[in-house]
């Protein structure tokens, strides 16, 4: 048990002394997850809105597909994106394998179904009167979309937090697509996997604590925002 206590002590040492390797992994994680979240929210919120708001043929089938994708294993996404981005793959010419944008693509694929499905649910649960009210007040199609999304903001925030949690903690995509390159594509989770395999529990625990801390800060600030508004 000694090494666990030791790990926790070491964790704080690393954080307080601003250990370059630790901070590089933290920064990389924040960067890549921000890219992935920006892309998946920008794509997923409108798509989720249409899925929840409009009635069209094949909607149920589409919902089922999206819901199935929620359980997409990260290693499978990693494998797919790896195959796509490899020099021998169809997108090889862009040289995205083992880069952060490559990892961000994989994580976007991971987060997108979550954002779409939860946004659709949030929009579906909006009052039927909202649409009538907005049209009665003269909203055009674009304004209708924006206001509906704003009215569903708490549901969409939940979608974003859920997706962020998944992106932040996944390891399969980062490891396979990113290659766990030190100073470049080593994220908190891939570093933890590596440090554990090396038997360096302290570093692993330190990074795990940081991950928890980030999750806590994100959730706490959302709760604060929610209470304030």
């Amino acid at each position: 048990m000694g090494y666990i206590t030791e790990g926790i002590i070491k964790a704080f040492e690393l954080l307080i002394s601003r250990d370059a390797e630790t901070y590089s992994a933290i920064l990389t994680t924040l960067k890549v997850s921000t890219y992935a979240m920006t892309a998946s929210l920008a794509l997923g919120i409108p798509l989720g809105f249409f899925l929840g708001f409009l009635d069209f043929r094949g909607k149920k089938l589409l919902r089922t597909i999206v819901n199935t994708l929620l359980a997409f294993p990260t290693v499978l996404i990693g494998l797919l994106v790896y195959a796509l981005l490899s020099q021998r793959g169809p997108l090889g010419q862009y040289g995205l394998l083992f880069t952060l944008p490559g990892v961000a693509i994989g994580q976007t694929i991971l987060a997108l179904p979550i954002v779409i499905a939860l946004t659709a649910t949030a929009v579906e649960s909006l009052d039927r009167q909202l649409r009538i009210t907005l049209l009665a007040l003269g909203a055009n199609r674009y304004q209708l979309l924006c206001t509906c999304i704003w009215e569903a903001r708490y549901g969409i925030l939940t979608a974003a937090v859920t997706a962020y949690g998944r992106v932040l903690t996944e390891v399969g995509i980062s490891l396979m697509v990113g290659g766990n390159i030190k100073w470049h594509t080593r994220t908190i989770t891939t570093a933890i996997a590596l440090e554990t395999s090396k038997g360096e529990f302290a570093m692993g625990i330190a990074l795990g604590l940081v991950l928890l801390l980030i999750a806590f800060v994100v959730n706490f600030s959302l709760m604060y925002l929610r209470q304030r508004s």
Partner: peptide, 27 residues
């Protein structure tokens, strides 16, 4: 936009009274 309806169960936007009333003018 010349026509407006007050439904039987009005829906208020999840905003302040001011923002609710100003919405139509703002858009």
């Amino acid at each position: 936009r010349k026509v407006t309806l007050l439904p039987q169960q009005p829906y208020l936007l999840k905003r302040s009274v001011f923002e609710n009333i100003a919405y139509g003018l703002k858009i």
